[in-house]
Structure formats: structure tokens, C-alpha cells
């Protein structure tokens, strides 16, 4: 949370035309955030997880006949876009842990691809393709949680 917080503060401060290099401002930012830069990675990973769960819930609902195709495919497209954005942000974050970061980026990338694939399959009404995409999605989601656990594992 706090890293996006930090980015927001810096943005807000520059937006009002102040230079954010003032010591007191830095101090305020530090007090407000007081966290490591890996928070941005954490935040984006959470967004990715939430989008993944949205995609899998809407797919389940579609297979069960609860969600109309048009709606399902739009929701999947939207979730896929959210995943792609999160992936890009994780990739660009200045993380002290490049290898873990790369793992996360890859997992999110796979998720995004699976979700987009599912979206197309739903649009075409191709059930078997949807089920394939669903399996991909599950595998990639498991990947994400492993990478996430690895990234935030206590180190020393």
C-alpha cells in the first residue's frame, strides 16, 4: 500500500508545483510511508490476485450457465487488461530482489494471456477451449502465489 502511497504523494506534490526534494517534504513522505519500495510490488501482486479471482469466478459462473457470454467475455477482457497493467508495474518497480520480481512478472504475464484466451473462447462459445484456458489460469494462479510467497519470504 505505502509505495503507491509514496508515488501518489510525490505526484501530488509535483502536481501542485512544489519540488519534492525539500527535506521536510521528504520527511513527511518518509513518515507517511515508512516502508520498503517492495510495497509497490506487493500492492500490484494483490491487484493481480484479485483480478485473477474475478476471472476465475466469472468463468465458473459462465460454465454453470449463470453469466451471459457477452458479459463474461467483457469481464475477462477487463481483468486481462488489469493483469497486464499490474505486470508492467511490477516489472518497472525498483525492487531489491530482481530474480523474485522476474518470477512475479512472468506469472502475471501468463495469467493475463490465459484470461485473454478465455475471453476469446467465451466469445466464440468454444467450451473445450474455455476449459483449457481455465486450467491455464489455475496453473498460472498457483504460480503467482508461489512466486509471491518466495518474494515475500522472510530472508536473512
Amino acid at each position: 500500500m505505502a509505495a503507491t502511497l509514496q508515488a501518489r504523494i510525490v505526484n501530488a506534490v509535483t502536481a501542485v508545483g512544489l519540488r519534492p526534494d525539500r527535506p521536510c517534504l521528504l520527511l513527511i513522505i518518509f513518515v507517511l510511508t515508512a516502508c520498503s519500495p517492495s510495497d509497490q510490488v506487493e500492492q500490484q501482486s494483490k491487484t493481480a490476485a484479485s483480478a485473477t479471482q474475478t476471472a476465475s469466478l466469472v468463468l465458473e459462473s459462465w460454465i454453470a450457465g449463470g453469466a451471459p457470454s457477452e458479459y463474461t467475455s467483457r469481464t475477462l477482457q477487463s481483468a486481462g487488461k488489469a493483469l497486464a497493467d499490474a505486470g508492467a508495474q511490477i516489472q518497472s518497480a525498483k525492487s531489491p530482489e530482481p530474480s523474485g520480481q522476474a518470477g512475479l512478472t512472468m506469472a502475471v504475464g501468463r495469467l493475463s494471456a490465459a484470461v485473454i484466451r478465455a475471453a476469446t473462447a467465451v466469445q466464440n462459445g468454444n467450451r473445450s477451449e474455455v476449459e483449457h484456458a481455465q486450467q491455464d489460469l489455475r496453473a498460472a494462479a498457483a504460480d503467482l502465489s508461489t512466486s509471491y510467497a518466495k518474494y515475500f519470504a522472510p530472508k536473512s
Partner: peptide
């Protein structure tokens, strides 16, 4: 409960009722 903790896309909203009422939930 399904792990969706961020509602920042309005597409997510109908998912509240679909698992309860199925298509009628939508």
C-alpha cells in the same frame, strides 16, 4: 470469500449475486 478483495471494475459487481441466484442473480 472468492479472493476478490479489490472492486475497482464495475464488471465485478454482478458477480455478487450470480453465485447465489445463478442467471437470475445477473
Amino acid at each position: 470469500a472468492h479472493g476478490i478483495e479489490q472492486v475497482d471494475d464495475y464488471h465485478q459487481l454482478p458477480l455478487m449475486l450470480i453465485p447465489i441466484f445463478g442467471f437470475w442473480g445477473f
